[in-house]
Computed example of a mutant assay.
Amino acid sequence: MTGITYVQGDATAPQGKGVKIVAHVCNDIGGWGKGFVAAVSRRWRKPEAAYRRWHRERSRNDFGLGAVQLVQVEQYVWVANLVGQRGIRTGRSTGVPVRYEAIDAALGLLADRAAELGASVHMPRIGCGLAGGSWERIEPLVTRRLVARGIPVSVYDFGA
């Protein structure tokens, strides 16, 4: 038992009552446009604009691997941009962009913010799409950083 609730559905339409944070993994080069972020942008414009500004102004802020940016998109819904991948995959890539240590650090920061807001956290299987990560390695991080602190977590599997 991990303490994570697995849901069939769309993480951009988080289920339940109260304050909700939709968490996802971003890269550290300012790229936004493929994978789960496309669904985020179809639903809300603010997270992409905030992420691009955060990256553009990185010399004056905390942007980098392991950082978290929360963007309020509805009265009770926030989006958490977690910087957990180094670059992006290209045709010449030899490794995967996921950085587990960065996701771990970002989840720790996310837990603090979720606790402050009294929020539940909703996410796809972060770091496992274009970032190339393994859910078997990420699930224990989610459990240790969020579930162990009493933060309700729902992981959404999209599709049939």
Score class of each variant (00 low, 15 high):
Thr5Gln: 01
Thr5Lys: 03
Thr5Asp: 02
Val7Tyr: 00
Gln8Lys: 08
Asp10Leu: 07
Ala11Arg: 00
Thr12Phe: 07
Gln15Val: 12
Gln15Lys: 12
Gln15Phe: 06
Gln15Tyr: 02
Lys20Cys: 11
Val22Trp: 03
His24Ala: 09
Val25Thr: 14
Asp28Cys: 08
Gly30Ile: 10
Trp32Tyr: 14
Trp32Gln: 04
Phe36Gln: 13
Phe36Gly: 11
Val37Asp: 15
Ala39Cys: 09
Val40Tyr: 08
Ser41Tyr: 10
Ser41Val: 04
Arg42Leu: 10
Arg45Gly: 08
Pro47Tyr: 11
Pro47Met: 09
Pro47Phe: 08
Ala49Tyr: 08
Trp54Ile: 06
Trp54Met: 05
Arg56Ser: 12
Arg58Ala: 10
Arg60Ala: 14
Arg60Trp: 02
Gly64Lys: 04
Leu65Cys: 02
Leu65Phe: 02
Leu65Asp: 04
Ala67Arg: 01
Ala67Leu: 01
Val68Glu: 05
Gln69Ile: 06
Leu70Asn: 06
Leu70Met: 07
Val71Asp: 04
Val71Phe: 02
Glu74Val: 02
Glu74Phe: 06
Glu74Ile: 04
Gln75Val: 01
Gln75Leu: 07
Tyr76Ile: 00
Val79Cys: 12
Val79Phe: 13
Ala80Glu: 09
Asn81Thr: 02
Leu82Phe: 12
Gly84His: 09
Gly84Phe: 05
Gln85Met: 14
Gly87Asn: 07
Ile88Ser: 04
Gly91Tyr: 01
Ser93Ala: 03
Thr94Trp: 03
Thr94Arg: 14
Gly95Glu: 10
Pro97Thr: 09
Tyr100Ala: 00
Asp104Pro: 07
Asp104Ala: 13
Gly108Pro: 03
Leu109Met: 11
Leu109Ala: 12
Arg113Asp: 12
Ala115Glu: 15
Ser120Asn: 05
His122Trp: 11
Met123Ser: 15
Arg125Ala: 14
Gly127Thr: 08
Cys128Gln: 08
Gly132Val: 00
Trp135Pro: 11
Trp135Leu: 13
Ile138Arg: 09
Ile138Pro: 06
Pro140Asn: 11
Leu141Pro: 15
Val142Ile: 13
Val142His: 05
Val142Arg: 07
Arg144Met: 10
Arg144Phe: 07
Arg145Tyr: 01
Arg145Lys: 13
Leu146Ser: 05
Val147Gly: 02
Ala148Asn: 10
